[in-house]
Amino acid sequence: MKLDNRKLDLTKANPSYYSAPREPQKCYFDEIPYLTIDGEGDPNGPGFAEATEALYTVAYSIKGMCKQEDQDFTVAKLEGLWWARSHSGQDAMYASREDWMWKLLIRIPDYVSAERFEEARMLAVNKKPHLAPLRFVSFERLYEGDCVQMLHVGPFSAEPETIRQISEYIEAQRLTPKGRHHEIYLSDPRRTPPHKMRTILRHPVTQQEN
C-alpha cells in the first residue's frame, strides 16, 4: 500500500515554530527531532562552513531515502544553539568569537528514526568521503519547553539590541533563563541583504519561584 505522497513542509506544518513577532513573546515547544553537529569558534571560519555542508548533506540523504517511500519532505531551515566557552552565564554575542561554542540544527520529520538517520549518514559518508565532519553529525531529540522568542530583522551584528529586549521581558515576567541561546535562520544570507535578514531569537526559560 502506498503512503500519502504529498511533500511535508515542516515550515508550513509548524507555523508557531517558524514564526515570531517583532516584540518578545512567551511560547512552548515540546520534544523535537533534529540533525545536529557541534563546533566552536568564529562562524566565518572554514569549520563552520564544513559543518553546515555536512549537516545539509545528511539531511538531503534522508530526504532521498524518504522520497523513495513516498514520505518526501522539504529540508527545513538551518538553526543554531550558541553559548560561550569561558563566560559562564554570559550570552555568546557578548563574548569573543574565539570563545563561541555552537550546535547547528536542522529539524527533521517525526517519522525519521535513529536507524534511518544512521543509514542515511553512512550513504553520505560514502558519497563525500572527503567531508570529515560527516562523522560528527548526530540525531538528537531536544526539549526546550517554555521559551521567550522574538523576530530579529537586520544583520547578525545588531542582535544584541533584540537580545536586550528579550532579557528585559524575561526579567519583567519573573522568568529565569535556562539552556542555550537559540537562533532560527529564516533568510538565506547568500540571497538576502543584511538589513532584510530575518532571524528568530529564542531562549528557554523557567518560572521563578515566589
Rank of each mutant, 00 (worst) to 15 (best):
M1R: 14
K2E: 07
D4S: 10
N5M: 08
N5W: 12
K7D: 05
L8N: 06
L8R: 04
L10H: 05
A13D: 14
P15A: 04
Y17F: 14
Y18C: 09
R22G: 06
K26G: 12
K26C: 10
C27A: 15
P33N: 10
T36I: 09
G39K: 02
D42G: 06
P43T: 14
G45E: 15
P46Q: 13
P46R: 14
E50G: 06
E50C: 09
A51D: 10
T52W: 13
T52R: 15
T52G: 14
E53K: 15
A54R: 00
A59N: 10
Y60T: 00
S61N: 07
I62C: 14
K63E: 06
K63G: 01
K63T: 04
M65C: 07
M65I: 10
M65D: 13
M65L: 13
C66D: 12
C66N: 12
K67W: 08
Q71N: 10
F73C: 03
T74D: 15
L78S: 05
L78I: 10
E79A: 03
E79V: 03
L81I: 07
W83V: 07
W83H: 08
W83K: 03
A84Q: 04
R85V: 00
H87Y: 12
H87A: 09
S88K: 11
G89C: 06
G89F: 02
Q90C: 08
D91N: 11
M93V: 11
Y94R: 09
S96C: 09
S96W: 12
E98N: 13
D99N: 15
W100G: 04
W102A: 02
L104D: 02
I106H: 03
R107K: 09
D110V: 06
A114P: 07
F117P: 06
E119V: 12
E119M: 14
M122F: 11
A124Q: 04
V125M: 13
N126C: 10
N126K: 13
N126W: 14
K127P: 01
K127E: 13
P129H: 02
L131Q: 03
L131R: 03
A132C: 10
A132I: 09
P133R: 04
L134N: 05
V137C: 01
R141F: 03
Y143P: 01
Y143E: 09
G145H: 03
V148I: 11
M150S: 02
L151H: 02
L151C: 01
H152E: 01
H152T: 01
V153N: 02
G154Q: 02
S157Y: 01
E159C: 03
P160D: 11
P160W: 15
E161N: 07
T162I: 09
T162H: 03
E171M: 11
R174F: 10
P177K: 15
K178T: 12
H181C: 02
H182F: 05
H182M: 09
Y185L: 05
L186Q: 01
L186V: 01
D188E: 08
P189T: 05
P189H: 07
R190D: 14
P194G: 07
H195S: 11
H195C: 10
K196P: 06
K196G: 07
M197S: 07
M197C: 07
T199Y: 05
I200D: 03
L201G: 05
L201S: 08
H203V: 05
V205Y: 02
T206V: 12
T206S: 15
T206I: 13
Q208N: 13
E209G: 09
N210Q: 14
